[in-house]
Design a binder for these strands. Structure first.
Lengths: 162, 162
DNA sequence: AGATAATATCTTCCGTGTCAGATATATTCC
DNA sequence: GGAATATATCTGACACGGAAGATATTATCT
């Protein structure tokens, strides 16, 4: 049984025999897979009342270790979103009482976004479910396949600066 | 040199030693990589005056072969977006004269979205550039690595129904 | 110190997507 | 044939992120 991308590639070979569309075997699949996986992950976030943006913020703060705080700039760099998106994500977390927005010492321009107690409890529970979910999604693979896939993706990420 | 995800995983191991976060080596990397690659691909679409949605519509129609037509439902299934998104994407292509929206024979509910001559010319040029871009992005890998990555992603896609 | 530039964050506007419901047409069952 | 249901598409409200510019604060240079 061929997957969708195999079908697509066969169509292109028929229609554009002048092009070598083999890269699609990697890139189109990666793209579709990422979409599909995101759907799966988001469902677990939603079970905890979290959207992707909020989960991203809380998890990023949580993994820094105590006192679970970063500046908006650092948050944006780690999560690959614009400064405007950071502001809005933090606003939403703030409205729920999951984080606080304080003034950073010394530099009046800087802010300090920190997890509150309730935010930490929430992300600790949500993250455990999230990881269980990821284990489920990877259950297709043997340990060797997982390592191989991880290595290839890591190599690619390093090269492209991701 | 460790990539970002390696750092993140080390943080989690420190903070949540109770959890096995190894799936992140695959899932988080895939996620970030997809984001980064999308950025790269979108730049080429933009060189032809296309957004991702428009490129998606035109390319999907083009690869069907003559007469380059599908229903909105089929378009949505192949491109993994909602019916509302299909309507809007087609509206945009329509405004540029790249597709036509006709009535499907027999069934008055159905529509028939078809490439126009100018749409076909546009996507033929854009797609050639797109494939060249994909070749460039995959240049990091040896042929063996590419096949290996493609096989692993295909296996995953088949299992999850992507 | 005062002017200029740099940095950090926030605000505003816009584009695009999803979701729920509206509409139009077709099918089924009596 | 008519009612109920199913299917295909579109519409409208809303959510979220990006981009550019506004604001606030700090650093630098003379």
């Amino acid at each position: 049984m061929a997957d969708h991308v195999s079908t697509v590639m066969a169509q292109w070979e028929q229609e554009r025999p002048d092009l070598d569309v083999t890269p699609q075997a990697v890139i189109a699949r990666l793209h579709r897979l990422a979409l599909r996986l995101t759907d799966e992950l988001v469902q677990v976030y939603a079970q905890h009342g979290l959207g992707e943006g909020e989960f991203d913020v809380l998890a990023t703060l949580r993994r820094q270790g105590a006192p679970y705080a970063l500046t908006p700039k650092e948050l944006g760099e780690q999560t690959m979103v614009s400064s405007g998106a950071v502001t809005k994500r933090v606003d939403r977390c703030l409205a729920q009482g999951w984080v606080s927005r304080g003034r950073r010492d010394e530099d009046g321009r800087g802010r300090r976004i920190a997890l509150t107690e309730s935010g930490r409890e929430l992300i600790d529970a949500a993250f455990a479910d999230h990881i269980a979910n990821e284990h489920r999604l990877l259950a297709v693979f043997t340990a060797t396949e997982r390592r191989s896939l991880a290595r290839l993706l890591e190599k690619w990420a390093e090269q492209t600066g991701a």
